[in-house]
Amino acid sequence: MFAYLIRRLVYVLPVAIGVSIICFLLVHIAPGDPLTAIMPVDATQEEQAAMRSAYGLDKPLPVQYAIWIGKAVTGDLGKSIATGRPVAQEVFSAVKNSLLLAFTASVIAFPIGLLLGFIAGYYRDTIIDRLVTACAITGVSVPNYWLGIVFVIVFSVQLGWLPSMGAGPGGSGQWAWDYAHIRHLILPSVTLAVVPIGIVARTVRALVGDIFSMDFVQALYAKGMRHGDVLRHVIRNAAPTALSVMGLQLGYLLGGSILIETVFNWPGSGFLLSNAIFQRDLPLLQGTILVLALFFVSMNLIVDVAQAAIDPRIKRS
């Protein structure tokens, strides 16, 4: 198990380096000059060149990359062109908000998704199964930003129960675990939870349905196991796959949802990313993408290791 962990950690290195190169290049491939956003329209050639060299944009790409990544490993992701604040600081506070939203959405989505999926798989091909499957497909198919807007209209505008904007009263202040702040969390996290509920429910349904039709389940009944014991066996068989699906979903959620965060003005990483794109804020964009990509890589690592820990078939290979 320890050797497996080390091996997996070693595999992560080239992936992380590759990811950083792609992050860096993507931003350069994208059309548009970052300077046009901040320079006055009538700026002279000299002024532009001066600005360019100030941000190191006049150097060849590999050199730019080397400088960027060299600083990045020390935690310095440069300064935002738009605000002048350190990118690391901006990303850090945005990621914190996204994490809060992601974990809350997961806490809502995973138990519901697992339960619905298990029930549907257990009662496969019955009316219950069809009902759950229909709900799951609807959840996955309905655009969640649209649903977010509907929620805002219904619960904020019409009923006036919940706030629709920001992460706290008076805009995006410091987060606190009090009633006033939690009220702001409800709508975005519920909206964000809808898709993972659908995906987890559908995966678990297929999984549990398949496991129940396996020979060993009949063999368990044949040796006199009670219903609860059989359920225990089925859950243990379903756990590794269910876990990896949830891990991936958590990864997606942690990445922050640009659309949901924009709809609810939630000051998270997706919101930050969309601002960075619109303002052509190159350092901020690169930094945010890098942090999010590394998040994904580490999420996958954690899921793989957790899977190996509970599924005996993975350990050996």
């Binding site: 020979d215 063999a219 009944y221 044949a222 040796k223 006199g224 196991m225 005996p312």
Partner: peptide
Amino acid sequence: HRGGDVSMIFQEPALALDPVYTVGEQIAET
């Protein structure tokens, strides 16, 4: 009755044994 007075062995032991429990655990639980 199942597994007590009457027990059964199956055609495909690879499929009839639970893949995520050890053989010892599976016998012991019975």
